[in-house]
């Protein structure tokens, strides 16, 4: 297990605000093997985007460590950080917000690889055209501006730009959520193809569990800054152990009417609590149908509940495996 590409240990990212501290990421320990895709799911405000932003050091961690290709990412600064950055790239939900509206597609793709001295300027044109072809953009679009493209095409531009730096790790934060269903499939297929061609590792964040299920080998479920369950995608979907994961999986609206009738829906009461004032003990206990008095006191740790499968719930044995 020494070939982990990325390791996080007790990682915390806290934001001071006027009336306290938002513990967006609060003690996350994770590892990602080379070539692996990890799916990260959870509701809005659970800290999944902050976790990804901390890994690429768009946010500064408050505590804990991040080790990427053997280097302590959390301690790097300045030039040293700049040298690592090309190797971990991020793509976002809204590619329009991450593209400069006054730069052509050509410039958007060429600039990072020239700035990071990955491709000499005189070879940039050939490299840009090659990348455009790989992501399915015709060469004749090179001189066009972002507003002239559809959402799906803009996401292709953002992907080409991220790949131009030859990253080892791609963090994709809701890459298809803003796209129409017919375009989503095109972009997901593109990501799968490029992942194989470039031997990319990937962290895929999505609130759409079907998308994550399709793309990822392992899935981590986050709730209020912590990982509450992690395991092989099939396990987490078909035999979720943590009560929150169970509710999440059961809440997915299904098209298949037959399956729909057979499953039992776990309807949660209330909304996710505010990260500014998280509940004591297990953060999920106020909404949990299985909670006992002890859950309000004890902070549960992740414990093994199968091969590669862990869940953070003190009542795992009592509530069974639900299969």
């Amino acid at each position: 297990m020494s070939n982990a590409l990325l390791r996080m240990d007790a990682l915390k990212t806290h934001f001071p605000v006027r009336h306290g501290v938002v513990k967006a990421v609060d003690g996350v320990t994770l590892r990602l093997e080379a070539g692996e895709t990890l799916g990260l799911v959870g509701e809005s405000g659970c800290g999944k985007s902050t976790l990804a932003r901390t890994v690429v050091r768009l946010e500064r961690p408050t505590a804990g460590s991040i080790v990427f290709e053997g280097a302590r990412l959390d301690q790097l600064e300045g030039e040293a950080l700049r040298r690592v950055r090309p190797r971990l790239q991020m793509i976002f939900q809204d590619p329009y917000a991450s593209l400069n509206p006054r730069r052509t597609v050509f410039d958007a793709i060429a600039e990072p690889m020239v700035a990071h001295r990955i491709t000499p300027r005189r070879e940039a044109a050939a490299a840009v055209f090659a990348l455009m072809e790989q992501v399915g953009l015709a060469r004749r679009y090179a001189r066009k501006y972002p507003h002239e493209f559809s959402g799906g095409q803009r996401q292709r531009i953002a992907i080409a730009r991220a790949l131009s730096l030859r990253p080892r790790l791609l963090l994709a934060d809701e890459p298809v959520s803003a796209l129409d269903v017919s375009v989503q499939a095109q972009i997901l297929n593109l990501l799968m193809r490029l992942r194989a061609e470039y031997n990319l590792s990937m962290v895929l964040i999505s609130h759409d569990l079907a998308v994550v299920r399709h793309m990822a080998r392992r899935i981590a479920v986050m709730y209020l800054g912590k990982i509450v369950e992690i395991g092989p995608a099939d396990e987490v979907f078909h035999r979720p152990r943590h009560p929150y994961s169970r509710a999440l999986v059961s809440a997915i609206p299904l098209v298949d009417a037959d399956t729909e009738q057979r499953r039992t829906r776990i309807m949660l009461a209330g909304d996710p609590p505010s990260p500014l004032n998280p509940p004591q003990g297990c953060a999920f206990h106020p909404r949990c149908p299985y909670a006992t008095a002890e859950c309000a006191q004890t902070l549960p740790a992740l414990q093994a509940c199968g091969a590669e499968h862990k869940a953070a719930c003190i009542r795992l044995d009592a509530i069974g495996n639900g299969s």
Binding site: D180, Q184, A185, L209, A210, R213, H214
Partner: peptide, 19 residues
């Protein structure tokens, strides 16, 4: 074109072209 929850992780059917 929707990924199925009991999916194989293979290539998805993608509607060609644009709206």
């Amino acid at each position: 074109s929707r990924p199925a929850l009991r999916g194989s992780g293979g290539e998805l059917y993608a509607i060609p072209g644009l709206p």
